[in-house]
Amino acid sequence: MKKKMLCCTLALLLVSGSVVSAHPGRTDANGGHTCRTNCERWGLSYGEYHYHNGGGSSSGSKSSSSAPKAKSSQNSTPKSAPKPAAPAYAKSGLKVYVNGGLVKFDSEPLVYNNINLVPLREIAEGMGAKVTWNREAASIGVQRGNHKITLTIGSKTIYYNGKSETVAVAPKVIDGVTYVPVQVFARGLGAGINYTDHDKILRIALKE
């Protein structure tokens, strides 16, 4: 009888000890789990992993090490240098005299790439030349005596009495005004020219 009572007492003690140390939550295959409920009551921290079979606990989580990222290689190809800006058309302040008389321009003479450009109509009139237009071909014929020039807008090829020559700057229409390189124009009509840069004066001498 005493043995039976002793066995019952031991069984009750084991059950009560298990109840005291246990708390809600299912255990995993290792006999442990992470505390989520009433953790302080059981002397645990929230999120602490522990065992019900007396194993240790761990509050830290294992972090997976990530492979180092490969550094992206920079493009070693050198960038090409930017192209220089094209020269702009600018007012030149040029004064043109034909046989001593000043030519008056309605539009300002211009300079482009160190080449003087003047309005075609006024310089042709000042030199006593006749101008004809071929609008379909965008070409211009200018004649004075036995000298004839044929120009095409946007083309650097100029014809002197039928013979072609390449010039530095092509005739161009700017703001509705046709500009021509004045030195080339004057020589093509058989005139002598003299230009002084310090005072921006071009003197044209017509030959009979």
Rank of each mutant, 00 (worst) to 15 (best):
G54E: 02
G55T: 07
G55R: 07
G60E: 15
S61H: 13
S63F: 02
S64C: 06
A67M: 09
P68E: 12
K71W: 03
S72E: 05
S73A: 13
N75L: 02
N75Y: 07
T77I: 14
A81W: 12
A81E: 13
K83Q: 05
P84C: 07
A86V: 10
A86M: 07
P87T: 05
P87L: 04
A90Q: 05
A90C: 13
S92W: 02
G93D: 15
L94P: 10
L94T: 08
L94V: 02
L94D: 01
K95M: 12
N99G: 12
G100Q: 09
G100K: 12
G100E: 04
G101H: 12
L102H: 02
F105P: 00
D106E: 11
S107F: 00
S107C: 02
E108A: 00
V111A: 11
V111T: 07
N113C: 07
N116M: 07
P119T: 01
P119G: 00
I123C: 07
I123P: 00
A124I: 12
E125I: 13
G126F: 03
M127W: 05
A129C: 14
K130G: 07
V131R: 12
E136C: 06
A137M: 13
A137I: 05
S139C: 08
I140D: 13
G141E: 09
G141V: 05
V142N: 06
V142C: 14
